[in-house]
């Protein structure tokens, strides 16, 4: 068995008001996994992410990164290796030019100036926003801001990238752009965790899905397993992906052969129908 890149053991966390947000979360995450984190609003996804990055300190439980248990001293190592792309870009963008913004993380890593510049250029090129380099963030559109926030994390060269509801508030074109970036990052072997309410996206993109409900993980498996488990779906108030319904209907009506080769996108279904 491989050693997990991130190991979370029995994590408990409650906010100042005393309401527990996480009630014993344990999970092992392995290098290169593409994980969809699903669950209703307030189920503890964001709290879990902030704990995983070390911004929040758990009341109880431990987190280890590549076998090292995280404590106050090596917290910085955790933040360097686990990057979060926040849901609201305006809450993440802090500097007054795109260049300064993307350079913020690398500057905090205390890298030499030349290295910071190199990484900023690299990240901006990666996200196709090199032209915006010296523009202030308040003259960017929502989709462009999102790209800047992703470039922020790419410039830090984090091993694990967490996206907190990245597709929220994006138009279809930008959402597609985002998905392309995710595929590209996945091909480079980055470990990714994405929280989303878009079950179709989760079904199509993820290799593994984790379902949060009331501060606990209630299911962990492949998206297919999770979305076929009606009990879990009911408990977490989730919808089934449209493609899954369509496929099962087609099988039921004997229009396609049941090969257990579940299509996740219209393109895949087309191939199946043309067989």
């Amino acid at each position: 068995m491989k050693e997990p890149i991130l190991k979370v053991n029995n994590l408990h966390y409650s906010y100042g008001t005393g309401n527990p947000a996480l009630k014993g979360v344990s999970i092992n995450i392995y290098q290169g996994e593409k994980i969809a984190v699903i669950g209703s609003n307030g189920s503890g996804k964001s709290t879990f992410f902030l704990n995983a990055n070390g911004v929040l300190t758990a009341d109880h439980g431990e987190i280890s990164y590549q076998g090292t248990v995280i404590n106050k001293k090596n917290l910085k190592e955790l933040r360097k290796n686990i990057g979060i792309v926040f849901q609201d870009a305006d809450n993440q963008i802090i500097a007054s030019t795109v260049m300064a913004e993307v350079g913020f993380g690398p500057m905090n890593l205390k890298l030499p100036r030349e290295e910071v510049i190199r990484r900023v250029d690299e990240a901006l090129t990666y996200m196709n926003i090199l032209d915006f380099k010296d523009r202030p963030p308040h003259y960017l559109s929502g989709g462009e801001k999102k790209r800047v926030t992703i470039a922020d994390i790419i410039a830090m060269k984090s091993e694990v990238i967490i996206f907190d509801e990245p597709t929220a508030a994006l138009d279809p074109l930008n959402a597609q752009m985002l998905e392309e970036v995710l595929v590209k990052l996945g091909a480079e072997g980055k470990t990714m965790l994405i929280s989303t309410h878009d079950v179709d996206f989760a079904y199509r993109w993820a290799e593994r899905a984790i379902v949060f409900n009331q501060g606990k993980i209630i299911a962990d498996g492949t998206p297919l397993e999770i979305f076929q488990n009606r009990e879990v779906l009911k408990q977490a108030n989730l919808k089934r992906p449209a493609m899954l319904d369509v496929y099962e209907m087609l099988v039921e009506k004997k229009m396609v052969k049941n090969t257990n080769d579940y299509p996740t996108s219209p393109a895949e279904l087309k191939i199946l129908l043309e067989k």
Binding site: I94, F104, M107
Partner: peptide
Amino acid sequence: AMEARGYDGDLVFL
């Protein structure tokens, strides 16, 4: 968000 990117009290921009 700043802390998540390693802010530790010094705000330095490129």
